[in-house]
Structure formats: C-alpha cells, structure tokens
Amino acid sequence: MINYLKNIIKGFSTILVGMKVTFINLFRPNVTVQYPNVHPLVRAGSDKMPDNARNKLNVIIPKCTGCKSCEKACPVNCITIETTKVASIDTEKPLMEDGKKRVFWLSQFDIDFAKCCFCGLCTIACPTSAIVHSTDFEYSCYDRNELLVHFSPFNKEQVAEKKRILAEEVKQKAEKALADKQAAEKAAQEQNITDSKIKSSDDQTSANQNIQNNSN
C-alpha cells in the first residue's frame, strides 16, 4: 500500500519535473537559422559554410589541362571529358592561366550531378586544382537533365568548328607530307606546282576565320 502511494506520488512529481523542463524551454531563445532570409554564407560566426563542405563542383577551365585524371579518379564515372587538339593553323591561340600555351581545347567537360557522390576525389587528383568544391548548394531543379552541367566554354557548333579546323589541319599536313614526298621525288624538276597549292590553302583559312567571326 505504501509502495502504491509512493509510486503514484513519484509518477506525478516526475511529470511535474518534466513539465518544468519544457516550460523553461518554452521561453528560451530559439536556435533556428532562418535560411532564405539568413544565408549561411552571409551569416557570420559558427554557422559559416565549412571549408570542406561538399557542395557543387566547379571547374576553372583556364586551369584545366585536359589530363583526364579526375575522370579516372571518379568512383562513379560521372565526369566525361573530351579534348580536341588545338590546331596550329587556328587563329585563336589560348593560354593557360599560368601563361603556358594551351595544347587541348576542352570540347566537352560534363559532370552529372545526379550521379556525383561529392566525394571530392577529383579535386585531389587534379594536378592544377582546376576542379574544386564551390560554396554553391542551391541548384535543385525541376528537370533531372538540368543536373548534367556542361563546363566546357564551347557549344556544339563551336566544337564542330574546332574539330573541322583540326581535321583541315590534319588533311593539310597529310597533303603537305604528300606534296613534300612528291617534291622530294621531283625536287629539281617541277617547283612551280607546289607554290600554287600553298597559295590556295591560304585563301581557305582566311575564309574560315570569317565564318568563325560571324558565329561569335
């Protein structure tokens, strides 16, 4: 009987203790971060975006050498890189960030953020730290295809154009090599014919340049 009464009193008193705790909490200041009003990047103090936050990946194209080590390092194969050699006859002569001459165009640099697991292995693998975690996390979208981000500065036509220039150069070189061969064969005999061929190809490159200017 005494235990029974003690049990009752203990039960009610512990409930009162619990109610006291919640009552104190009722008037304590809240800890909520009001996200759209207070952006985590703007908000100073402890809640700043951490340095190693795994947000959207960003590719700094001038730094990228097109070595594809990030593509190899990616555990889920969500990076697709395609490079196109810079043609020597191309009038555009890009430079790397450090001033070196660029050897490859990045005709395609796609990261599928729908597949990416944001592990950051690509950022470690990159020799020039061209691929880094940015602080952008607000890129949810209505369509999944929007998550396939193209980092390459070229659109499809420009890529085709670059490829065409490259093909032209290869063709030219082949022709030149052929011509050289022929010239070597008929070195002393017929020099006038090769001169005229080089002249005609010069005309063609200037035409290409015009087209590119129009498209830009």
Binding site: Y35, P36, P40, A53, R54, N55, K56, F113, A114, C116, C117, F118, C119, F137, E138, Y139, S140, C141, Y142, D143, R144, E146, L147
Partner: peptide, 22 residues
Amino acid sequence: PIDVYIPGCPPRPEAFEQAVLK
C-alpha cells in the same frame, strides 16, 4: 513523377529547404 530534384550526397539541409521553396 518527381517535381524537384535535389543534388547532393546528401544535400545540405539548406538545399532541402531551397527545394521546398522551389
């Protein structure tokens, strides 16, 4: 059918809130 896709592995809580706003 999905209305909003949130990228991330996992996404930040703020990213989820942004998706709710979207």
